[in-house]
């Protein structure tokens, strides 16, 4: 049986969009979509996302009006995915990226069940509340900046990075924290995770305070990996040039 996917395309929702002038004098288009439980965000374009948890189902999106014909903004209501992509083949990703670098797509949404972020371009995410799904995964091949006070996923937080990823979260509240990096990954803060696993072949800049049962670090890359706090079981395999600072553990 053919699977039914409900797609709300920009063409449909642009009916209820509004054009305004930004502070930089650029004509901006804003539109509001309605979906209260986005689980995944996929983006191949520069985006600035603010994730709140205020119970609203409105997703407010603002972007330069001149890129509208090339943008594809979709909500897949079956899988709860919000995605940003290029729709028109007359413009390349590179050209559209160049335009959006200075004026990225701005998104404000509310969800407490976000479980996947896939970024292949430039993205920044601000978590106002920090409540995400039980399993929260970020896959980044572009440039990603994540910030907020708390990131709270009951079971697992996973980062897979091959690009440049800066994660400035004060507290990672979860059971398992898993960091996998082949690019550049900056992670700092505190975690409540019982199990912390870090695997790197890239450049790492880690400064984490932990209180966990098991810490496992495997690296063939470089950079500085610093952990402090209490750990019952530590396992480090480092065959690269990384400086691993664990003297403040236990």
């Amino acid at each position: 049986m053919r699977k039914i996917i409900f797609l709300i395309s920009l063409a449909v929702v642009s009916i209820c969009s509004v054009t305004t002038l930004s502070a930089q004098g650029i004509q901006e288009k804003s539109l509001t979509l309605h979906h209260g439980s986005i689980k995944e965000i996929h983006s191949t374009l520069p985006t600035c996302i603010t994730v709140a948890n205020d119970g609203s189902d409105a997703i407010e999106i603002v972007f330069p009006a001149n890129v509208e014909p090339y943008l594809e903004i979709e909500i897949d209501k079956r899988d709860d995915i919000l995605s940003f992509d290029v729709i028109d083949e007359s413009i390349t990703h590179r050209e559209l990226n160049a335009v959006l670098q200075k004026n990225p797509i701005r998104v404000r949404m509310s969800t407490a069940v976000l479980s996947d972020i896939l970024n292949t371009s430039d993205m920044s995410i601000t978590f106002e509340d920090g409540s995400v799904g039980e399993w929260f995964q970020v896959i980044n091949t572009g440039t990603l900046f994540v910030n907020g006070e708390v990131l709270a996923a009951k079971k697992k937080i996973e980062y897979y990075n091959t690009g440049t990823f800066t994660s400035k979260i004060h507290s990672y509240n979860t059971t398992i924290l898993c960091l996998t990096n082949t690019g550049f990954l900056y992670t700092n803060g505190y975690t409540t995770a019982k199990y912390v696993e870090q695997s790197s072949t890239g450049i790492e800049n880690t400064d984490l305070k932990v209180a966990c049962e098991k810490l496992s670090i495997s690296t063939t890359g470089s950079g500085v990996i610093k952990y402090e706090g209490t750990v019952d079981d530590v396992e480090i395999v480092s065959t690269g040039r990384a400086k691993i600072l664990t003297s403040k553990l236990n």
Binding site: D232, V234, E235, V237
Partner: peptide, 16 residues
Amino acid sequence: NREIDSGTTVFKMAVK
């Protein structure tokens, strides 16, 4: 401690 912090290392630690 110098070697653990310096780089090329296979290191395990456990506390009870």
